[in-house]
Design a protein around this nucleic acid. Sequence first.
DNA 1: GGCCCTGATGATACCGGTGTCAATAGCCGA
DNA 2: TCGGCTATTGACACCGGTATCATCAGGGCC
Lengths: 358, 358
Amino acid sequence: MVDEIEGLPVRARSSRRSRAGPTISDVAREAGVSLMTVSRVMNGKTNVREETRERVQSAIKALNYSPSMAARNLAAASEIRIGLLYSNPSAGYLNEFLVGSLDQASRANVQLVVQLCERPEERAAIVQRLVEGGVDGVILPPPLCDADAIHRFLQEAEIPAVVVASGRPPAGLSSVSIDDRAAAAAMTRHLTELGHRRIGFISGAPDQTASALRLQGYGDALSEEQLASEPELVVQGLFTYRSGLEAAQRLLALVPPPTAIFASNDDMAAAAVAVAHRLGLDVPGDLSVVGFDDAPQATTTWPELTTIRQPIADMSRAAVQLLVDDIRTVRDGRSPSPRHTRMGFELVLRQSDAAPPA
Amino acid sequence: MVDEIEGLPVRARSSRRSRAGPTISDVAREAGVSLMTVSRVMNGKTNVREETRERVQSAIKALNYSPSMAARNLAAASEIRIGLLYSNPSAGYLNEFLVGSLDQASRANVQLVVQLCERPEERAAIVQRLVEGGVDGVILPPPLCDADAIHRFLQEAEIPAVVVASGRPPAGLSSVSIDDRAAAAAMTRHLTELGHRRIGFISGAPDQTASALRLQGYGDALSEEQLASEPELVVQGLFTYRSGLEAAQRLLALVPPPTAIFASNDDMAAAAVAVAHRLGLDVPGDLSVVGFDDAPQATTTWPELTTIRQPIADMSRAAVQLLVDDIRTVRDGRSPSPRHTRMGFELVLRQSDAAPPA
DNA sequence: GGCCCTGATGATACCGGTGTCAATAGCCGA
DNA sequence: TCGGCTATTGACACCGGTATCATCAGGGCC
């Protein structure tokens, strides 16, 4: 706008070319081959003589060439945009999730659109807007991984999606998760091995399918040990700090109180610690408290929480890759067969657990 | 590949074209104008007759056209990639920062490369790799906003950068920040107005320039009230939870102890609360504790923290925009004049502050 | 030795936009 | 009434890659 005040091109000096880096033709000239050969080398095609490949590769290195995403996308008609819908952002989780997705997205040469989707009633509308805006696929981290309204919409629109950490992935969608049930069992077993016999459990939000799995895992471990699972020891939580406060208060009001509390996530575990301190209990001397997720919360609390570590960044990386594969499959005219990736978890021992008081 | 088994194109139906949406030529045909006219309308150029513009716009709406980023970037040679370097990820901060940057980046049609940069000795190398990888500019949130090694490298390479929340932006770089000094003064004033006279201060990491400003603000407010600032009331922290624990212990061991503690961030404030509880003190009944940042930590602790809210997402949005402008300026052959954006802060009152005990 | 076939390489047409410049039409003043 | 000027529009090259198909050299086989 402002450059045209005089009616003349004010800045004539810069040609149309402004991108700094070398192009594929520069490399081709340097290596003494054609464009296509360079392109083949860049894309790892096999039908290039080894000697030629090496010459091209050293030319690439010499010129420090890196291909233009824009041109590549345009030519290959492979521009992919994927939407990442999130809600109820437990900061730590979302943060790791974002870092992983971004990393994989840039690696896979894919554009990521991150979109907040808070109120349940606007969910369908937001997804619709996203799809109309040209998004080719959607990633659903918890809690949206269990949002039926979104699943239905995507299914109708025939948009691929990947759900992460859902306890019961809807038919037709790919998923990435850990074995929540086995992880919860492992943690519970850890507590029984320390000698605990009365273990309180704070469950997760009922609208998230992973919650039920964690509860089942807790039950599994108890029955292995021939311990009856007493209903009063299981209290409903919502994955929020506040709900953890209330749940812990109820558990610690029991007579006799549990000697350990296993919360379904770290936020609620931190809340349980706070309640215990307020009641004058020492953690872990008088009460062990353990969590789930290994959120940042776990180490910014005192004592630091023993918890289950989920490889969140790796999970989101895997989700992006799965989704990209599905989108490519759809574009080829085939229909994708959902795949389910299960990642490993890890029991992280810190300072919030100990043997029960004598 | 597999499509050529017969030597014939197996899937003739899909031409090379796989992108679903209509292209600019479809719109041009529909509206009965040339490509360029559509392009002009899309880019809001002024030299298009009103009637033509309307015809084009209704064609756009009719076809639900949205332009291809790839083609646009390629043609305009305006592909911009900006690097976002982070370190020491205080999850909540980084999270909000990422969300804001991503939002603005997708709005401005810019690619964002997020890169962890942990150990000080690799900083220069990482930045170098980023720049060689084709990044056109860099955003430096705290604590990297104060990393001299990075500044020097960028300056030499003539890569634009924007520092966020630095207390003393290096010459030549644009910056976004809040008035840390005024904010700290406001918080301190709030405490004195509640009646506190002995206010402990936990300062931030000494290698971050904002720390000094917050300390100055604390001092400002004290001298307004004619209160001497006693050296023993100011304890060095490092912005980490652990450092907050130690600092709070030292403050509460003073005789007489302070009636309020102002921590330079929420992590340390949460630590101060934990120490107070462990000593059997009620917060805020016996001791007020306030923080800075309004990190998620502030509301996932008990009691919830009174703190200073920084508009982190807005700051990162602004940073992206500033950087994009600078990059465009450089590409035009002009040299960018650094701009400094200062955003507002907010005193958020919650439950961790009260009048001093009688 | 001639023929067919295969693997490596190159020439060229695109992908979907934007920049440049030319062409045209409408308006003004002389 | 005519030349000059501006506002509007269009034709065309070009951005930097990839896909397709042609070309060419060499090897196996009869």
